[in-house]
Simulated scan of single mutants.
Amino acid sequence: MTTIDALLDEAGRTFADEAGITLSDEPAPLYRLLVLSVLLSRRVQAQLGVRACRELIDAGLGTPERMRDASWQDRIDVLARARYRSTEQTSTALGEGAQLVLDEWGGDLRRMREAAGGDAGTLQGYLTQVPRLGPVGADIFTREVQAVWPEFRPHLDARALAGAKALGLSQDPAELADQVDGDDLARLAAALVRADREEQVREDVLDD
Rank of each mutant, 00 (worst) to 15 (best):
A116D: 06
W105H: 12
A98L: 07
R113G: 02
R111D: 13
R113K: 15
E88H: 07
G117F: 08
D119K: 15
Q129W: 09
R113S: 06
T90M: 13
E88C: 03
S91D: 06
A98F: 05
R111H: 15
R85T: 10
D108L: 07
R111K: 14
Q99K: 15
E114V: 06
R110G: 12
E96K: 11
L127K: 01
T90L: 08
L94Y: 00
Q124I: 02
D119L: 10
R83P: 05
T92H: 00
V130D: 03
A93T: 04
G106Y: 06
A98Y: 04
G125L: 06
E88P: 02
D119P: 04
S86V: 00
M112W: 04
S91R: 03
G107S: 12
G118S: 14
L109K: 05
G125Y: 14
A115F: 05
R132E: 12
G121W: 03
V101M: 13
G95I: 00
E96Y: 01
Q124M: 15
G106N: 11
L102W: 08
T122S: 13
A115Y: 03
E104W: 00
L100I: 03
S91F: 01
G121H: 10
T90Y: 01
R132C: 03
A115T: 05
L100W: 15
G106S: 11
G118M: 10
M112L: 15
Q99G: 09
L127Y: 02
L123A: 12
T87V: 11
Q99T: 14
R110Q: 14
